[in-house]
Design a protein around this nucleic acid. Structure first.
Lengths: 248, 248
DNA sequence: CGACACGTTGAGATATATCAAACGTGGTGG
DNA sequence: CCACCACGTTTGATATATCTCAACGTGTCG
C-alpha cells in the first residue's frame, strides 16, 4: 500500500481509515531521474509529493547559487514538501538524489482533509513537526559538533530513519551521496569529508564501499556523534534499537 | 489586544473573528524572570505559550549538557512552543532570555480549534512552518557562512523580526544577548564573537552599546550576511524595507 | 580512446578555538 | 562608604580544525 510508510512506528501512527483517506488523496504516481528538480524555490505550489522509492533532498542556496547547503534528506515514507501546503511557496528547492518514485497529493485534496478530517490533519501537522525537529538537530550537529562527530551524527540519523522503513538492517545501508554531498550536509568541504571518513574507518566505526555504508560499532558511532534518537519520535523499542542498545 | 501580534504583516494574517477565537483560548497570562526554564525537554506538555513581552530561546543540549546550541530566538508575537501541541513532548528546552510576559494556551483549547475552526488551525500550522523556515536558514547560516557573515545574517533576521512588531525602528533595537549567547546562536566561541563584532564595527556596519544594536549600513550588512528576507514570509513591502531597499 | 565525475593525497593557508590575563561594571555585605 | 565578587568584555599568544589549491588515480561512458 502506498501510504503504509507514513508515520510508521511512531506514536501518532495512522489508523486504517486515515490511511485510506490519505491514499485516496493521491492523484498520480510519478517517476523522476536522479538530480532532477522536483520543486523550485519561490514559486507557488499546488501539490505536495510523498516519497515512495529513492532519495530526495532540500537545498538552500547562497547568493551566488553555487555553494548550496542541504537542509534535509528524505527517505521513502517521507511527505517531502507537505510544508508547502500551509506555506504555499517554499524558501528552498527540492531535488532528487537518485531515481525516484513519488506520489502526488494536490493541495485541494489536503484542503478537504483539513476541513473534514481534523484528526488526520493534526497527524499531518505532526509530520511536518518531525521535519522541524530534524532541522533543529541539523543545527546542533553543525553548530556544536566537530567534523568527525558531524558525520557520525548524520550516519546515525540516516541509519535510524532507514531502519524503520526496512532499508537498513541496523548496520548496513545504501547511501547514494558523494563526498561533496556529505559536505553540503555537514557544512564541510568535500576534501575534508574524505579525510574524516578515513578517520572513522581507521577507528573501526564505519566503512564505506561505493555507496554502501557499513556500521561496525553503532554504540561507538552514537557516542562520537552525541546522537540521541528521541527527536525522531519513534516508539521506544525502536529508539533503543537504533542507538545500539542491545535488545533485552 | 493580546493576539494582535500573531502573523501580523504576513499574507496569512488572522481575521478579526480568528483573533477573537485565539484570544479566548488564553487562560492565563504569566510573568517569568530572566533565564527561567519555561518548558523542559522530554516531558509531556499540556499547554503552549504565546510571547507578549521579552525574549525567549530554545536550546538543544549536547551530551554533557554544558555547551548548548540555541536553535531559535523568540520575540513578542511568537507562539513559542506551539509545535508542542502536535508533538506533545519536546526534543529541546525553552528558556527566557529576559523577564517575560506570556499568555498560556492549554492544548485542550487548541483541540477545539483544530476540530471546529479548520481555517484558523491551518494558520496555526502555517505559524509553525515559519519556525521551520527559520530553522532552515539557521542551518544555512552556520553551515555555509563564515563568522562575520553569520553574525550579520543573524542581526538582519532579528532586525527584520523586531521591525514588524515595532521593536526596531529599522536600524536600532535592543538585543539582550551576551557574546556567549551570540556564540551559542552562531556556532562560535564567545571570544571569537567578540573579535568579529569588532570587525563589523570597524567596517561601519553595526555598532553595539551595551545591549543596544545600531545598524549603520543595512544594505552592507544584508550583503555580507547574504540575507534574503523571503523566508520570513512578510508582505512584500515589509520584505523590501528590512533588506535596506529604499522606499520608492 | 578521451572526457568526465569522483575519490585520494600532500602542502600550505586561513579561520576559529583555547588558554591566560586584565579590565570594567553592577551588586552585595560589611 | 568601601571591599569584594560574579559576570561580561577585551586583548594577546598559541594551538588546532578546516579550507584551498594542485596533482594524481580510478572507473564509467560516450
Amino acid at each position: 500500500m502506498l501510504t503504509r510508510l507514513v508515520l510508521n512506528q511512531r506514536p501518532a501512527d495512522l489508523t486504517p481509515a486515515e490511511r485510506e483517506v490519505l491514499r485516496a488523496a493521491i492523484t498520480e504516481v510519478r517517476e523522476y531521474d536522479a538530480q532532477e528538480l522536483v520543486t523550485p524555490a519561490h514559486r507557488p505550489l499546488d501539490s505536495s509529493v510523498l516519497l515512495l522509492e529513492g532519495m530526495m533532498a532540500r537545498f538552500v542556496e547562497d547568493r551566488r547559487g553555487d555553494r548550496q547547503q542541504m537542509v534535509a534528506v528524505h527517505v521513502p515514507g517521507d511527505f517531502v514538501d507537505l510544508h508547502g501546503y500551509p506555506l504555499k511557496v517554499l524558501d528552498h528547492e527540492i531535488r532528487t538524489l537518485t531515481p525516484v518514485t513519488a506520489a502526488v497529493v494536490p493541495h485541494r485534496k489536503l484542503n478537504v482533509i483539513q476541513q473534514q478530517h481534523p484528526d488526520l490533519a493534526l497527524k499531518l501537522w505532526y509530520l511536518t513537526m518531525l521535519d522541524a525537529a530534524m532541522h533543529r538537530q541539523w543545527i546542533f550537529r553543525i553548530g556544536r559538533l566537530r567534523a568527525p562527530a558531524r558525520l557520525a551524527h548524520f550516519l546515525c540519523e540516516t541509519n535510524a530513519r532507514l531502519s524503520i522503513v526496512g532499508l537498513s538492517d541496523g548496520c548496513q545501508f545504501d547511501l547514494p551521496l558523494t563526498q561533496a554531498d556529505l559536505g553540503a550536509i555537514c557544512g564541510l568541504s568535500a576534501i575534508y569529508v574524505n579525510r574524516v571518513m578515513r578517520q572513522l574507518r581507521e577507528q573501526h566505526l564505519v566503512s564505506f564501499h561505493g555507496y554502501r555504508v557499513q556500521i561496525h560499532d553503532l554504540a561507538g558511532l552514537v557516542r562520537l556523534g552525541e546522537f540521541r534518537a528521541d527527536y525522531l519520535y519513534f516508539n521506544e523499542d525502536v529508539g533503543r534499537r537504533v542507538t545500539g542498545v542491545p535488545p533485552l
